[in-house]
């Protein structure tokens, strides 16, 4: 199996390389649309709505990239990819950017020839418990029975965490996510564990979502972000700075509603970001108002988070690690200057 994979990759490099000769940006402009690898279905991150329009946090990132290039968030074609074929699709040049809750790991970046952009969402494994248990920290979970999906890294992380903290627990494993949450909902166990983002989505499947809370502890690192192919630095820069522009905008309190007024803002940082002063878009191969386009069409980081994952959505995910660095989070943007 391993051999056939490396063989496939060898073919990929040998055959796909010629088609990647031109910079990705030129191809995207020629095609007049961005091709974005997306999740086939993850609540809050990438999901078709009633009309079949793609919505979600990862989806909006692609719309932001398209806005920066075309000033039109609709010029994106979404290719829903399974966990298995997402890397082949990126490798073969079928998609321009992979924005599909993909965990940034060393082997993926070094071994497979990808470049991961900034972390758009800091995920990690968390715990869902009933409010009436009156538990406020995972450290109080000693002796609890915990529902977990079989054969996942969640199961392994769980074992590690309880061993490190010298606590006892009773694992109750199920084959599918659906069975697991159902068992938790019907009282088969006290705690449900999975990735944080998933825990919030699963919570909405319970009979009374408001009866459950997600504990603050995160017991594993799952940094999610967009990925591109190595070897096209200009394209990589565009993807990187799309995210940074959105974070910077939130920091400077520029959002989709006030961005037109902010054009007159005397703050030099705002002026540079919105292209009133200097021409920072040119270095990216974009126009002077690249960041203005992103903010006007899609919004700043906080707006996108709020709309898809935060309190305006059904998921009601707390910002947590994804708050700005000024609010004790990890989202931080290098300055535009």
């Amino acid at each position: 199996m391993k051999n056939s994979v490396s063989l496939a990759l060898l073919f990929a490099v040998a055959f796909a390389a010629p088609s990647l000769a031109g910079p990705t940006l030129d191809q995207v402009k020629k095609r007049d649309s961005l091709v974005c690898g997306s999740n086939p279905g993850l609540a809050g991150f990438g999901l078709p709505d009633d009309k079949g329009q793609w919505t979600g946090f990862d989806v909006e990132f692609c719309r932001a990239v398209a806005s920066a290039i075309f000033n039109d968030p609709k010029k994106v074609r979404f290719v829903p990819l399974t966990a298995k074929d997402r890397f082949t699709a990126l490798q073969s040049g079928e998609i321009d950017v992979l924005s599909r809750n993909t965990t940034w790991t060393q082997s993926r970046e070094v071994g497979q020839g990808f470049e991961f952009g900034p972390v758009t969402y800091y995920d990690g494994q968390g715990f869902l418990v009933r409010k009436k248990l009156n538990v406020s920290s995972a450290l109080e979970l000693s002796g609890a029975s915990i529902c977990v999906q079989q054969g996942t890294t969640s199961e392994l992380n769980l074992a590690d965490y309880f061993r490190t903290h010298d606590m006892k627990y009773e694992p109750v494993a199920f084959a599918t996510a659906d069975e697991t949450i159902k068992a938790y909902d019907t009282g088969r166990c006290d705690v449900f564990t999975t990735d944080m983002s998933q825990a919030y989505a699963e919570r909405s499947k319970t009979a009374n979502p408001d009866d459950h809370i997600v504990l603050p502890e995160v017991i594993s690192k799952e940094p999610l972000g967009p990925a591109v192919r190595q070897g096209d630095d200009q394209w990589f820069n565009i993807v990187k700075w799309t995210h940074y522009a959105m974070v910077q905008a939130e920091e400077l309190n520029v959002n989709s509603k006030n961005v037109d007024e902010k054009l007159k803002d005397p703050n030099p940082e705002v002026k540079r970001l919105l292209g009133v002063e200097g021409n920072f878009g040119e270095g990216l191969g974009l126009t002077q108002d690249w960041a203005y386009r992103i903010i006007k069409n899609v919004g700043n980081y906080g707006e996108v988070f709020e709309r898809n994952l935060g309190d305006s959505s059904k998921l009601k995910i707390k910002r947590g690690l994804n708050a700005l660095w000024t609010n004790k989070g990890l989202q931080y943007s290098p300055p535009v200057r």
């Binding site: 086939p40 829903p80 659906d178 909405s204 059904k314």
Partner: peptide, 27 residues
């Protein structure tokens, strides 16, 4: 569906994830 095509069953499978509707009986 395993190759990312949204056939009928796949759309049913995806739509049930919608947090607006997700619930114990939706699946």
């Amino acid at each position: 569906a395993v190759v990312g095509i949204f056939d009928f069953l796949r759309t049913v499978d995806t739509a049930r994830l919608d947090p607006e509707w997700a619930g114990p009986n939706i699946s």
